[in-house]
Amino acid sequence: MESTASLDKTAHAGFDPARSAPASPVICIEPTRGWVAVKLKELWDYRELLYFLVWRDVKVRYKQTVLGAAWALLQPLFTMLVFSIFFGRLAGIPSDGVPYPLFALAALIPWTFFANALGQSSNSLVNSAHLIAKVYFPRLVIPLASVLGGLVDLAVACSLFVPMLLYYGITPGWGILWLPGFVLLAMVTALGVGLWASALNVEYRDVRHVIPFATQIWMFMTPVAYPGSLVPERWRLLYNLNPMSGVVDGFRWALLGAGAPPGLPLLASVFASLTLLVTGAFYFRRMEKTFADRL
């Protein structure tokens, strides 16, 4: 939007009306053209707003639903049951030597987080139209808050692993320390796509109909119901350009020791997801100035 340093600390620190004004403006507002900087510094200045928006979303979500936290458990739990019956039992899909229910759950939990985060963030700007029309803050805060809000659900859902691992008598190895890294990868991917989708959603209102459909297709392109090892070796690198396959493989390896340890395919996933994030952030910033007028 505006085109200069947001807050020139030296210029306005120790405000005293009796003193003479600073020589240079604190804020300059001018029309901008084309691509603009992402301005991470300003985003950092607004971290408290980000915190409160996440806090609000989580609080309201848990207050408003009858089931509250149980909702975050039921969604992956039931999907796991359905997958186990239809894909595991009836279709007899292999599961890299781990019990199929556990195999499915290890993928469904990060996938559910990703799908919800993407769904929430792609509609986040449209849902916050009122805020955008009345208050200034870096708009990046809004999709970011929707993605971060999903982390609480993810943490709740992860508690499902404890009884499941105990039941099947599986003890995770040191690989489990990698888990936060895979969560981060899922977050970065969701945010990257979320930035594109939310900004496009302001300009083109039919994007919101495309997202659920695209998410569904995406799930089948990700080894959620089947092992990634089914994909022929020569296609594997290309297949792993889908960052979510890196996340799902990673979760399975970290928790269950199934599949190969992180290697080149994971690097492909990281590369793809960072590309999504960076391009998404720049596209978002480019479109940002039109948000208030379009919403």
């Binding site: 604190v26 009345k134 200034y136």
Partner: peptide, 30 residues
Amino acid sequence: RITEPTTGRVELYGRVGSLLEVGTGFHPEL
């Protein structure tokens, strides 16, 4: 700074707070 001008320039010498509405972002459930 909610919307961008088409032409011209504004210089603000100080931290700006704006109240275009009261109660923006109030959530009824909270």
